[in-house]
């Protein structure tokens, strides 16, 4: 098993009876089930703490302000665009145009980095200027706690995705991922779209309702 032929393929391949996809794709899908349940646990905790009588939970508009919500909406848009760029990476790779695939992948990574940057800016702003005012006003102290946990855990996923995509980018540059390795890119795409999808849930729960 340890023999490496320079490609990123590893391990034994599918058997005669299979689901018709690569092993790696099933691995990623099942991993995402697990990851979704982790977020489900945290979101369920959030829901339980928030939707309790007399929970003193601030409305998003009071907590973040119009500008804050709009900034995060922009951030959401950037992350979705990054997801679209990831689709283009695979599309260009399937057409065999690795130069363009590489550029789209750089756009994907850039989107993730901008997202993280805006989020870091927002966290700083909220910590320094905002949340202590909310606490002084007697709102539930778990509002910032769940906010940090949810957005932080998601941000960690974005950071992992950026690293993951960067590794793929380097592999493309070194010729280890070529137009034949679409499944490698597709699996990375699955993860990246998942992170995007989770963000839409987090954004809805934390910023919109």
């Amino acid at each position: 098993m340890s023999a490496q032929d320079g490609s990123v393929m590893e391990g034994p391949g599918p058997g005669e009876e299979s689901l018709g996809v690569t092993n790696g794709k099933i691995g990623m899908w099942t991993f995402l089930v697990m990851d979704a349940m982790t977020f489900a646990g945290i979101l369920a905790g959030y829901a339980r703490l928030r939707w309790t009588p007399d929970s003193m939970w601030p409305f998003p508009i009071d907590a973040f302000g119009v500008i804050g919500i709009q900034l995060t909406a922009l951030n959401t848009f950037i992350l979705i665009c990054s997801s679209v760029a990831m689709v283009h990476v695979l599309a260009e790779q399937m057409r065999g145009n690795m130069d363009r695939a590489e550029k789209w992948l750089m756009a994907t990574i850039g989107g993730g980095l901008i997202f993280l940057g805006i989020q870091a800016f927002e966290w700083t702003h909220l910590i320094i200027d905002k949340f202590h005012l909310l606490m002084d006003a007697g709102y539930n102290q778990n509002f910032p706690a769940t906010f940090y946990l949810l957005t932080g855990f998601h941000g960690m996923h974005v950071a992992v995705g950026v690293i993951y995509n960067t590794i793929i980018l380097m592999a493309i540059r070194r010729g280890r991922v070529t137009k034949d390795h679409t499944s490698t890119v597709e699996i990375a795409g699955l993860y990246w779209h998942f992170v995007d999808l989770i963000w839409i849930l987090v954004f809805t729960f934390v910023y919109l309702i």
Binding site: G15, E16, E17, N23, G27
Partner: peptide, 15 residues
């Protein structure tokens, strides 16, 4: 994850 990928995808002929 490993078990599921193995069982769903690596069965021999007829299994």
């Amino acid at each position: 994850v490993n078990f599921l990928a193995t069982i769903f995808n690596m069965r021999c002929k007829g299994m």
